[in-house]
Nucleic acid binder design. Structure first.
Length: 637
DNA sequence: GGCAGCTGTCATACA
DNA sequence: AATGTATGACAGCTG
């Protein structure tokens, strides 16, 4: 008979049952979370697990799922009116039918909300509870509960209670849980470690003493007892502890979140039962819960009211989360976020509206089509076929013969090219382009080519002609001037852009001096190099632009991840608070054989390696806590 | 006049 | 070897 393993759980189960007499699902589900969920909540997968387990954390799945939350935001607004908030499962005034079968707002599961006939009970043994359950619920195929292949209560909790007295459906979530591939022990230890690391030490003196005192008035007559003088070890079980009724003070002990209506169903009550056969319990190490909530250093400054006045042991975590947000903003500013981004991020934190992945503000998003411009094909120019212009933007897809000067290039053209792949309105992101607007007159003007040839002797007004000649001279490049001075019989444009074969052919048609040939080759070399320089600079600009966009993207990703981190920290904080409440709740209701509550200074709740929940001396708990901590550290190394 | 940005050119490496 | 390309460096020009 596995009393040693089962009774510790009964220690939890039984008070929970009483605690749930009016809101049966509330504590049961939350305690289930305490036992099975908390160890995992550091993992994002836990969120799904919890959700699947119908563990109501006072918040829906959307808390953990951005896309889900965003997508269903509108739907939720509508649905919440009908299901999550309004339905009778929240209202105690609801009629019996409404309360008999309600729908969980998160999962849609149906479950009974109340166990008739239990209201008048103030104290029940576990066996009595089970009998009540048996009498209350019609077991079998006609059960209202969702079918499940979970073990019955008797399987899950080895007691002498005999045949199954619990509808199978009550245990279904547990089964789901036990089938999870998690290393629960590891997860739980992670939880412990994080909680401890994050200063989740309760100023538990007040907390525990309050609990201790506040529950004293509800001392429950019980057949179970625990000799106070007896050193409590791992064999001390619930069976030996008496339980206080919690009817009166239960509500006050629960935070509003835990009282929230999303908790549901007495059916969840028995989900707590560990199914050792599935390894749920066995995966737990001997874990000291008390280390979280009842640190060894306790002062005795108890208040009269326990729950609400408890110092928040998670204050540190809260602070951490808030600091996180603050530091996030600092980070945003320090690490190159522009003020707009930073303020947007801040707004998102404030509004808690989830992610805003709108990238329209990004200056980089404008250049989506230009990224590959550097690899664009050669222009339509017949002169570029040779590859002299390997880097051409679209605007260069114009016939050089028609538009280009002798060097195949014109300043305004270049500027236009750059503008062509970048919206001018967005040039503020490229301050180095702000003042583009030069008119280097030593470059070739488009029409210079036609006037390149020496003009016939002037016959008109010389001053006007000289003016024009000066203007044209200014439009010509130095090589144009040189070519004209050397009487080169063909335009520089051809010199530069003709393919080698045609170029040689052209040279062969004329009788040219060595000086002329040398100049022609220099012109060709310089012309090609000029275009190469232009392409090179364009590439360089493109590279810079792409890098800027990459930086923007990375910053956006970073801010998104930071937002998610903040959200997860929030969720973690909530869950820690609930775990804390539950622990205090359970612990505060334990009674020794004299009906006296246990002192949190001396005792602590702990998971045993076999999955049971046990009450152990605090010194032992602390010792084990330190051992766990050491193990954690070793594992991290 | 100084400055920043653009452009052409040269030198050089490489294909 | 000749030719073309890429790129850093420099200088001139312009606003």
């Amino acid at each position: 008979m596995g009393w040693e393993t089962s009774t510790p759980l009964l220690l939890l189960l039984t008070p929970i049952w009483f605690l749930n007499r009016t809101e049966p699902g509330v504590l049961a589900l939350t305690l289930k979370f305490l036992m099975a969920g908390a160890e995992k909540f550091l993992d994002i997968d836990l969120i799904d697990i919890l959700w699947r387990q119908d563990i109501d954390l006072g918040a829906g799945r959307e808390i953990f799922d951005y896309s889900h939350r965003q997508k269903e935001n509108d739907v939720d607004k509508e649905a919440s009116n009908g299901q999550e908030r309004g339905d009778g499962w929240r209202s105690r005034e609801g009629n019996a039918v409404d309360r008999a079968l309600l729908v969980d707002g998160e999962t849609g599961e149906s479950f009974p909300t109340q166990v008739p006939g239990v209201e008048d009970q103030t104290a029940l043994s576990l066996e009595e509870c089970l009998r009540l359950l048996e009498a209350t619920f019609p077991f079998g195929e006609n059960s209202e509960f969702p079918a499940a292949d979970a073990p019955s209560l008797t399987e899950a909790v080895p007691t002498e209670s005999g045949p199954s007295v619990v509808p199978d459906g009550l245990l279904s979530p547990l089964l789901v849980e036990t089938e999870l591939p998690f290393d629960l022990e590891q997860q739980w230890q992670d939880l412990m470690s994080i909680m401890e690391r994050q200063g989740m030490e309760i100023n538990s003196t007040a907390a525990t003493e309050n609990l201790y005192n506040s529950t004293g008035r509800d001392i429950l007559a019980t057949n179970y007892s625990l000799a106070p003088s007896t050193p409590i070890n791992q064999n001390v079980s619930l069976h030996q502890a008496s339980l206080g009724s919690c009817a009166q003070d239960f509500p006050s002990l629960f935070s509003p979140e835990i009282e929230s209506p999303s908790l549901s169903g007495s059916a969840a009550l028995l989900q707590l039962v560990p199914d050792n056969s599935t390894g749920f319990g066995s995966t737990f190490g001997s874990t000291n819960l008390s280390g979280i909530f009842f640190p060894s250093q306790l002062n005795n400054t108890a208040n009269e009211t326990s729950g609400p006045d408890l110092p928040d042991p998670l204050g540190g975590l809260l602070d951490e989360a808030m600091l996180d947000e603050i530091s996030l903003m600092d980070l945003a500013i320090e690490e190159g976020f522009n003020p707009v981004q930073a303020s947007r991020l801040e707004e998102e934190f404030d509004s808690d509206s989830g992610l805003s992945l709108d990238s329209s503000h990004s200056p980089a998003s404008l250049s989506s089509s230009e990224a590959s411009s550097s690899s664009s094909a050669s222009t339509s120019s017949s002169f570029s076929e040779e590859g002299a212009v390997g880097y051409n933007s679209d605007s260069e897809n114009l016939d050089f013969e028609e538009t280009e000067g002798a060097v195949g290039y014109q300043p305004e053209y270049n500027k236009f090219c750059r503008m062509s792949y970048q919206n001018p309105s967005q040039l503020h992101y490229l301050p180095y382009l702000e003042h583009v607007g030069h008119n280097h007159t030593y470059n070739m003007a488009p029409r210079t080519l036609e006037t390149d040839e020496p003009e016939p002797a002037s016959t008109g007004k010389k001053s006007a002609k000289e003016k024009q000649a000066d203007f044209l001279d200014k439009q010509m490049s130095r090589d144009e001037h040189r070519a004209r001075a050397m009487k080169i019989p063909f335009p520089n444009e051809k010199i530069i852009n003709l393919p080698v074969e045609e170029f040689n052919e052209l040279l062969s048609k004329y009788q040219l001096s060595e000086a002329q040939l040398s100049l022609i080759r220099d012109i060709r070399r310089r012309g090609k190099n000029k275009m190469a320089a232009q392409n090179c600079r364009k590439r360089k600009l493109d590279t810079i632009i792409n890098l800027e966009r990459d930086v923007e993207d990375l910053q956006r990703d970073k801010s998104k991840l930071l937002r998610e981190k903040v959200e997860f920290l929030r969720s973690l904080r909530q869950m820690k608070q609930k775990v804390q409440s539950l622990y205090q709740e359970v612990f505060g209701r334990l009674r020794d054989e004299n009906g006296q509550p246990y002192s949190p200074n001396q005792y602590a709740l702990q998971y045993a390696s076999d999955g049971s929940m046990i009450l152990i001396p605090r010194s032992l708990a602390d010792q084990q806590g330190r051992r766990q901590e050491r193990k954690q550290k070793d594992r991290r190394k």
